[in-house]
Simulated assay, not measured.
Amino acid sequence: MRPAWAAIDLAALQHNLKVIRKLAGGKRILAILKANAYGHGLQRIAQALSDIDAIGVARVDEALQLRNAGITRPIVLLEGFFDASQIPILTASNIQPVIHNLRQMKELSQVENLGDPLKIWLKVDTGMHRLGLEPDQMLSAYQQLVDLPQVHDHPVIISHFACADEPEHPQNKKQIQVYADVLAQLPPSATSFANSAALLAQIVPQYDWVRPGLALYGVSPFAGQVGGDHDLKPVMNLRASIISIRKIKAGESVGYGGQWTATEDTHIGIVAIGYGDGYPRHAPTGTPVLINGVIYPLIGRVAMDMVTVNLGQKLSVKLGDTAELWGAGLAVEKVAEAVGTIPYELLCNVARRVQLDYCER
């Protein structure tokens, strides 16, 4: 028996990369590994993706962790630098920042004795209204960047969809048109727009770079679908052992607050995982848990280190059996739906104390 662990299937990761390559049609791949590779382990996932073109992370510390682990492939800093003091770190470690506001441009232009110039990705806001320059700022910003001695070559023009997980949403066509209008004003440049959802739905020309995140890990970004609908395989299999089994009589309550009460005699199993491991505390009674190929309902409140499942009157589970909270047998998309969240949150919230076991079968 053991507490929560995640079996990380690197063969599934490679399978998903092949699917993505086929959809990308030869375009370059920026693999998104932010948030500890969506909970899968930043360093090991980066090492496993040895033949992708570049890696995308959100924070400087993530990029430096990869460099310290010996990862030499290009790294793109998706949120860019937060202040000017980070710029020398980026050039020393060959990290490519995304420029998304005029303040960053000013700070970059004021850095002296930078050494090697930086490769820049320039972000345009095509309708997400989160990060990115306004479309009418792009030509001036582009020209300023290419004239700076701190900048290497021409920037990559990048944008992000607001509604790609809804392929028929009219916002997608609006953003594609804004992006095309911006590109028409600029000299020929490398481009990047398609995330996992846009790539899977084929709603946009792939341009030069595609940016798969969730799809790499075998998960669908679309409501009501699972990764298998797109020939993707789940990479994370979150598991924990059954550490206690007991019989409960009708009328007896279980767990904090006595939130769940048995309506008939039954057996319950205690699984060694809880919100301290990143399992969602708000998971309601009825959330599916897979044990020996059978779905059982979670009951009562999720505790810090344990959850309880109703094993029924006829017991077919034994002490030490393994419960799968999500994975190859129970899609994380289904669990997210039951919990009322999205699979991104479940994967990214897996706690550091959960051991990651890597398998290359």
Rank of each mutant, 00 (worst) to 15 (best):
P3D: 14
A6W: 02
A7E: 15
L13C: 07
N16W: 10
N16C: 07
L23F: 04
L23T: 01
G26M: 03
L30K: 09
L33A: 02
A37E: 02
A37P: 02
G39T: 00
Q43H: 13
A48E: 13
L49D: 10
D51H: 11
I52D: 08
I52F: 12
D61Y: 14
L66S: 08
L77F: 06
E79H: 14
D83W: 09
L90W: 05
T91G: 12
S93V: 10
S93K: 13
I95A: 03
V98Y: 00
H100D: 11
L102P: 03
R103A: 15
M105V: 08
M105H: 04
V111I: 13
E112H: 14
V124G: 00
V124R: 00
L139E: 12
Y142D: 01
Y142V: 00
V151H: 01
H152G: 12
H154W: 13
H160S: 06
H160P: 04
F161Q: 02
N172P: 09
Q175C: 08
A184H: 12
T191Q: 10
S196E: 02
L199A: 05
V210C: 02
P212M: 07
L216W: 07
V219G: 07
F222M: 03
A223F: 08
K233D: 10
K233V: 11
M236W: 08
L238G: 00
S241M: 11
A250C: 07
Y256A: 15
G258T: 14
G258E: 07
T266N: 14
H267S: 09
V271I: 15
V271D: 11
D277W: 04
H282W: 08
V289E: 02
I291H: 01
G293M: 01
V294D: 03
I295H: 11
P297H: 01
L298H: 11
M304P: 14
T308Y: 10
N310I: 02
G312M: 08
Q313D: 15
L315T: 03
T322F: 09
E324R: 03
A328Y: 08
L330D: 04
A331C: 02
V332N: 00
V332Y: 02
K334W: 06
V339T: 04
G340R: 06
T341K: 05
C348F: 10
A351C: 04
R353P: 03
V354H: 00
